[in-house]
Amino acid sequence: MSGRAARLVTATLMGAAFLAFFDRALLAPMITAAAKELRSPPEAIAHAVTVYVLTYALAQLPWAAVSGRFGQLRTLAVASGLAAAGAVLSACAWDAGSLTVARAVSGAALAAIVPTILVHIGDSMDLSRRAVAAVNLATALSLGMTAGSAAAASLAEWWTWRAAFASSAVIGAVVCLVFAWNGRGGGGAVVGFWRSVPYLVRNVWVWAVLVLAVVEGAVLVGVINFIPVALEADGVAVAVAGFALAAFGIAVVVWSVVVRALVRRLTPWVLLAVGGATAVVAFALLWGVRGVVTATVAVVLLGFAWACAHTQLQTWATDVMTGARPLGMALFALALFGGGVIGSALGADAVARGSYDGLFAAAGLISVAFAVGSALLRRVYRPVEQG
């Protein structure tokens, strides 16, 4: 692969990361608008969010096997193409059921993207450089989430929610074409899928990191999507509520500059503790006094928690999974978004009951468990790879 082609692929990897969270962020701010047009109860549309996260989680392992056999770029081409198809189906949905199926297709397709990028980071960089690379990845993902939330809120308020899914289809098609044009490639030695299983099963640190990923995913992947819905229930306009969540992505991008400096000065366990504690404060604010200003402040704090704690957890996972990264990082994503399913289920229940105080209280307690557990475990962990 020429230098120019390599640079194009590198840029497209970040574009694919952008797409993954752009698409994921679309439906939550549009639940009310979609429910009204499709003549369905809001909780039925909210379940589509849960199904999306569920299929994203369940598709991790199949994609790990596919990428090892057919190559990373071919796999990413197929995945982004399927995601584009799912977005088209979402834009054409005629009821809650068809929307749920379409969202399931997109969720399953986009499951391939982030683990593949993490494997590339783990294979091509030493441990110290991975921490910065993980922050850069978080920036691309957060830009996608910001743009997705803002686009969804704006289009649902002033035009049609269907246009938001159409925009995701366009991005997916472009990413698909670039990856398809560049053929097999992908870097890194192929690691046997089944040969990785015994190593991962016997490694107690693998289990520890996966449990922490479930806990983190419940709040930072699942519950966070229901902040706009909670604001809408209190009478806030759809567009304003959506932009409140969009502040999360903006915050991650801004905080990433700070975190890049912090990773060179603070130890990983301290960063995990600080990030987890920040999430506790954020959900305490949402539980105590809810409003646009309070929600925006809370979301900005959650952006710091993601930029600080999540990137450290990702970096830790790339070290724990050494020698079995394709399957290991797929399991990490499965755990993270499996936790997101739990958080989304809690959110859907809150939508059905029309009460969000219990949701944010539970999220705060879960965040306490993550802050304490991750910091204590990371402090005693000894890295496999130094540097």
Rank of each mutant, 00 (worst) to 15 (best):
R7I: 13
L8G: 10
V9N: 10
A11K: 01
M14R: 11
G15I: 02
G15D: 11
A25I: 02
T32R: 08
S40N: 06
P41Y: 09
P42E: 13
E43H: 02
A46N: 11
A48C: 06
V51M: 07
V51E: 10
Y52V: 11
L61H: 08
P62H: 12
G68S: 11
R69L: 12
R69M: 14
G71F: 07
L76Y: 03
A77I: 09
S80E: 02
L82V: 15
V88K: 06
L89W: 08
L89H: 05
A91Q: 00
W94C: 08
G97C: 00
S98M: 05
V105R: 11
S106K: 04
A112E: 05
A112W: 08
A112P: 08
V119G: 08
M125T: 14
S128W: 06
R129P: 00
A134T: 13
V135M: 12
A138Y: 05
A138T: 03
G144A: 09
G144F: 09
A150M: 15
W159Q: 03
A166D: 11
S167F: 15
A169M: 14
A173C: 14
V178I: 14
G185Y: 04
G187H: 13
V191D: 09
V197F: 06
V197P: 15
L200H: 13
L200V: 14
R202Y: 02
L210D: 01
V215A: 03
E216N: 10
P228S: 05
P228L: 07
V229G: 05
A230W: 10
G235C: 03
V238T: 14
A246Y: 09
G249D: 06
S256C: 13
R264Y: 04
L266N: 06
V270K: 15
L272P: 06
L272T: 07
L272Y: 13
L272I: 08
V281Q: 08
V281T: 13
A282H: 09
L285Q: 14
L286I: 12
L286Q: 07
G291S: 13
T294R: 01
A295Q: 07
A298M: 00
V300H: 03
L301V: 00
A305G: 02
A305V: 04
A307Y: 00
T311I: 05
T311F: 06
T318M: 01
D319R: 08
T322Q: 13
G323T: 09
A324C: 14
R325F: 13
L331W: 15
A333K: 08
A333I: 09
F337N: 06
G338A: 03
A345Y: 03
G347Y: 01
R353T: 12
G354R: 04
Y356V: 04
Y356R: 12
G358A: 13
I366H: 05
S367R: 12
V368D: 03
V368E: 01
V372D: 00
S374V: 06
A375G: 05
L376G: 06
R382M: 11
P383A: 07
V384P: 10
G387W: 11
